[in-house]
């Protein structure tokens, strides 16, 4: 007589590697939003000022949440752009140049066409998006047609972009003072400025592209196994080119929000976006090898990065530590997301 033996215990299969990797970023985010108020509470306790944990926290407040979200929005757009590329197993390091060029061209066009959104100057917005798309397309062409690894092709294109932005501005700052455009930051609905809602809408659009279009599915196909995708008749070159073009559009969107937030367009507008966005993507759980992760991971990743940056200020950690903490975070995130059995060596 044969007995039916229970297969693997449900407890063991509950905590699979895949599942841990999938939910870890969100848990980290929740943990961070609780741990910073705790340090704050501890600090107050030492100084003899007691406050209720979470309730009276300076960190855990709507005002601070708005601050974190405002800081997050431009980086979120850039990070979403690069998410598509990383999903394909490539990388795009050109964002600093692209953001600067888009910001500067937008500002020039905006001012020379009237200087207010109520005039023809609104055309500067689509113009900036087109510029981003063109830069992304060129970037993709250099990578795909010249067969240069994407990290190097895009790094070089980033240098070209920054140089081009510098050429356009000659080092000057261009002020964009139109009240209607700046209402992105100044007008608030339910405590949050409009730019947060714009970013949310763009995130939903990105999610739609990723999960409801052929292009989005092709990104996963290329990232999951390029040879296989190619063998099954997919035009991989075309998918890559479209990916880089799409990333360029999102970089341009990031540029618009960055200008909206600060009111200034300059060569330095793009500074720091590279490291922050790459950090956000990998910390969010999108694997550098491609095929795993997506837009929601990136949203969580961007929030983690900005919560850390903001929280460190709130609990009084010195600002110089931030770059180092992010650097270590990237290494940890990549290490955790790497399945060592499937990698023989890396360059």
């Amino acid at each position: 007589m044969t007995e039916v033996v229970a297969q693997t215990a449900p407890r063991a299969s509950f905590l699979t590697r895949d599942r841990i990797i999938k939910w870890a970023p969100l848990l980290v985010l929740v943990f961070l939003t609780l741990v910073f108020p705790f340090f704050e509470w501890l600090e107050d306790l030492q100084e003899g000022k007691q406050h209720l944990f979470l309730v009276d926290s300076r960190f855990f407040s709507i005002r601070n949440a708005a601050r974190i979200l405002i800081a997050s929005t431009p980086a979120l757009m850039v990070a979403i752009g690069v998410t598509f590329i990383i999903l394909m197993g490539s990388i795009d390091l050109s964002m600093e140049g692209t953001v600067s060029v888009c910001a500067v061209i937008f500002a020039f066009a905006f001012i020379s066409w009237g200087g207010t959104l109520a005039s023809w100057a609104w055309l500067a917005i689509p113009l900036a998006l087109v510029v981003g798309a063109v830069l992304g397309f060129i970037n993709g062409l250099v990578h795909v047609r010249l067969k240069i690894p994407s990290f190097m092709a895009s790094l070089a294109m980033g240098f070209v972009g920054t140089g081009f932005a510098l050429l356009l501005t000659g080092g000057d700052r261009i002020r964009v003072e139109d009240e209607i455009f700046r209402s992105l930051l100044t007008v608030r609905w339910f405590n949050f400025p409009i730019m947060v809602y714009v970013a949310l809408a763009m995130t939903l659009l990105a999610w739609f592209i990723q999960s409801r279009t052929t292009l989005g599915r092709n990104f996963y196909a290329v990232g999951g196994g390029e040879e296989l995708a190619h063998a099954s008749g997919l035009n991989v070159t075309r998918v890559r080119l479209m990916g880089f073009t799409l990333a360029g559009v999102f970089f341009a969107m990031g540029a618009l929000l960055a200008v909206g937030r600060i009111g200034i367009a300059e060569t330095a507008t793009g500074n720091n976006f590279m490291f922050i966005s790459i950090t956000a993507v990998v910390v969010g759980g999108t694997a550098l090898w491609g095929g795993i992760g997506g837009v929601w991971n990136t949203l969580v990743g961007v929030l983690i990065v900005n919560v850390i940056n903001n929280g460190m200020v709130v609990i009084g950690l010195p600002s110089y530590a931030q770059d180092g903490v992010l650097g270590l975070l990237v290494i940890i995130a990549v290490v955790l997301s790497t399945d060592r059995k499937s990698v023989s060596f890396v360059k």
Binding site: I278, L288, I331, V334, V335, R340, K347
Partner: peptide, 8 residues
């Protein structure tokens, strides 16, 4: 740790 050199 298998992190590509450009990231590490």
């Amino acid at each position: 740790l298998y992190v590509p050199s450009f990231v590490s």
